[in-house]
Simulated scan of single mutants.
Amino acid sequence: MNLSDSKKKLALAGVVCGLVAVCLALLGNPANMAFCIACFIRDTAGAFGMHQAEVVQYARPEIIGLVLGSFLIAVATKEYRSTAGSSPMIRFVLGVIIMIGALVFLGCPLRMIIRMSAGDLNAWVALIGFILGIATGVFALKNGFSLGRAYATNKINGAVLPVIVTGILVLALATSLLKASEAGPGSMHAPVIASLIGGLVFGAFAQKSRMCFAGSMRDVILMKNFDLFSVIAGLFVVLLIFNIATGRFVAGFNTPGVIAHSEHLWNILGMYTVGFAAVLAGGCPLRQLILAGQGSSDAAVTVAGMFVGGAICHNFGLAASGTSLNPETKELVAGAVPLNGKIACIICIVICFVIAFTCKREEAK
């Protein structure tokens, strides 16, 4: 099964993934967070007690499904490759940075597209930062940036993360050891089996189509290649139709319940950080999970960094808050990025520049 040999097939893969997100939203996931990698990793980290924000603690089966879906389809189509050794600690740091940027914005690139399709103008503003961040990463690539090559390793090594997420699934289903939110976003979820199946399907199609939100824009800027962009376009169109058809499309900045804020500079800088770091790491948060599933230990290290980053954001007050209605006064309470989050975001951008222009191919030095 080859989906990458035509734009139509790639767009179809995006449509399928969009339908998965729609189904999960209808079945109980937060509508504007139907499938958010950053949010779901943050929730899963909370389930393990890595942070104590009680409203965002739930082992999301979608994350498990993404990794296993990628793993199973890669094995079935003989694309599984166990590799490692490409600057793992730098990749870990980039994983942390990606999560900090995402939680300053309040969402990963996938959720940005979901929010855009629902009329959230804050997400459209953030898109500016995401594109600029990717463009900065492309500039670094053109100037010789490289984290070095990965090397083939024992096949078991690449299967470690799939085994770990399978263990998480067992813990979630068979024990009461993991924490689960009783209120807030963490308490809103589709049935476990639906979430798991959705993750498996999404993961399989993302693996075969090479879906990557940062990679699609990187290819457009670097090579004028719109192939990967076709996947994102298919996803967006499905979500847009769904939101319009169900009356969920509301164009505006301060829309209660969307879990977003209107601090435009920080929406831009948050997604600038994500875009920049994603290009340096070789893929957006979704792509890192898919690569980890198909055997890349380097991507698995980045995923580990994202888990730690999610915990850091809530343990040290870096994550932004969303606009909401005060239940008592019914007044609109604007979402905001805390000072700690702003400082952390700037530090992350500086670190990205240091990594981008100190890690170079030998011939480029």
Rank of each mutant, 00 (worst) to 15 (best):
N2V: 14
D5Q: 12
K7G: 07
V16P: 02
V20K: 09
V22C: 01
V22R: 01
L24D: 03
L26I: 10
L26W: 04
G28F: 04
P30V: 09
F40H: 07
T44E: 08
A47Q: 03
G49W: 10
R60Q: 15
P61T: 12
S70C: 12
F71D: 00
A74E: 13
F92T: 00
F92M: 00
V93I: 14
I100G: 04
A102W: 08
L103G: 00
L103S: 02
V104S: 09
F105I: 06
L106W: 08
G107N: 02
G107K: 03
C108R: 00
M112H: 02
I113A: 12
R115D: 08
S117G: 06
G119A: 05
A126S: 09
L127E: 06
G133L: 14
G137A: 01
F139E: 06
N143D: 11
R149C: 00
I156S: 07
N157G: 05
N157D: 13
L161F: 13
L171M: 12
L171P: 01
A174H: 00
T175E: 09
L177Q: 03
A180D: 01
E182I: 03
A183F: 02
P185F: 02
P185G: 01
S187H: 00
M188F: 02
H189R: 05
H189G: 03
H189Y: 06
A190E: 02
I193T: 14
F202I: 06
G203K: 10
A204D: 12
F205D: 08
K208S: 11
S209K: 02
F213P: 04
S216F: 13
R218S: 10
M223K: 15
K224G: 11
N225L: 15
F229C: 15
A233I: 15
F236R: 15
V237P: 07
G252V: 12
N254I: 11
T255V: 15
G257T: 08
E263W: 11
N267K: 12
I268Q: 06
L269W: 13
G270H: 08
F276H: 10
A278W: 07
A278R: 02
A281M: 04
C284V: 08
R287L: 10
R287I: 09
Q288G: 10
L291A: 10
T302V: 14
G309E: 04
I312M: 12
H314F: 15
N315G: 02
F316P: 00
F316R: 02
G317Y: 01
A320Y: 03
T323E: 08
S324A: 14
P327S: 00
P327N: 07
E328Y: 15
G335F: 07
G341M: 03
G341N: 06
C345R: 08
I346G: 01
I347R: 03
I351M: 13
T358G: 02
R361T: 09
R361Q: 11
R361I: 00
K365V: 08
